[in-house]
């Protein structure tokens, strides 16, 4: 049986807004298996992005246990959580969030600056990641010289370059046309199926969710049901 790479137990996340306490995640428990491609769906404010942030180690739960890649994230301090993110998780965002002043290759190299790799090796690895996502020929281009689809591929290459076991994607196709979106989703599918990456993707788009192996629906901070899609 495949082991769970992501495990949440009774996770609660509350925000303080003025004097009001808002419960965004309400006692949620969830297991995501290694190599799974999971789509998180739900209306705005349902807690999808908050859940994604908790899984990616960007935020801490108010209570409950979060274990990702064998590490209890709810127990890690800020510095250790940064190190953990650098080694275990890659992030893809809706608006790519590339550094505008750096070339595609330099953008992809960013996570490798936190390693002990030499400059030449960093460049080699970055080019390998760009090749994997099919955009090596645009390595010297800056983000404003790339189309949306190309920029998102660069962002995926950046997420992959440190070889994390988990990819968290927040609406990765939200800013793309259908054709580019399908290309990006197929790429995520390949990364999950052929490279064993666990992909957790937040999306509003049912068509995008169809590329995932499992769809999770959220509302008011809880999981409604789970739809398993035939691989």
């Amino acid at each position: 049986m495949t082991e769970a790479i992501v495990s949440l137990r009774n996770v609660v996340k509350e925000y303080q807004r003025g004097k009001q306490t808002i419960e965004v995640i309400a006692g949620l428990s969830l297991d995501i298996l290694k190599g799974e491609f999971v789509a998180l769906m739900g209306p705005s404010g349902s807690g999808k992005t908050t859940l994604l942030n908790l899984i990616g180690g960007l935020d801490r739960p108010t209570s409950g246990e979060i274990t990702v890649a064998g590490q209890r994230l709810d127990q890690l301090k800020s510095g250790a959580l940064s190190d953990w993110r650098a080694n275990n998780v890659g992030f893809v965002f809706q608006f790519y969030n590339l550094m505008p002043m750096l070339s595609a290759q330099r953008n992809v190299e960013l996570p490798l600056l936190l390693t002990n790799l030499a400059a030449a090796q960093r460049k080699t690895n970055a080019m390998a990641a760009l090749t994997l996502v099919g955009i090596a020929d645009r390595a010297k281009h800056k983000p404003n010289e790339l189309s949306g689809g190309q920029a998102q591929r660069v962002a995926i290459a950046r997420a992959l370059v440190a070889d994390p076991s988990l990819l968290v994607c927040d609406e990765p196709t939200g800013d793309l046309d259908r054709k580019s979106a399908d290309e990006v989703l197929r790429l995520l599918q390949i990364l999950s199926r052929e490279h064993g990456k666990t992909v957790v993707m937040v999306t509003h788009d049912p068509k995008a969710a169809e590329f995932a192996g499992r769809q999770l629906h959220m509302d008011k901070g809880t999981l409604l049901d789970a739809t398993r899609v035939a691989a």
Partner: peptide, 15 residues
């Protein structure tokens, strides 16, 4: 700010 947030997301520590 968004770029700094991304660097932190990638694992760049506060320090």
């Amino acid at each position: 700010t968004p770029e700094l947030a991304i660097l932190k997301t990638l694992g760049f520590s506060n320090n």
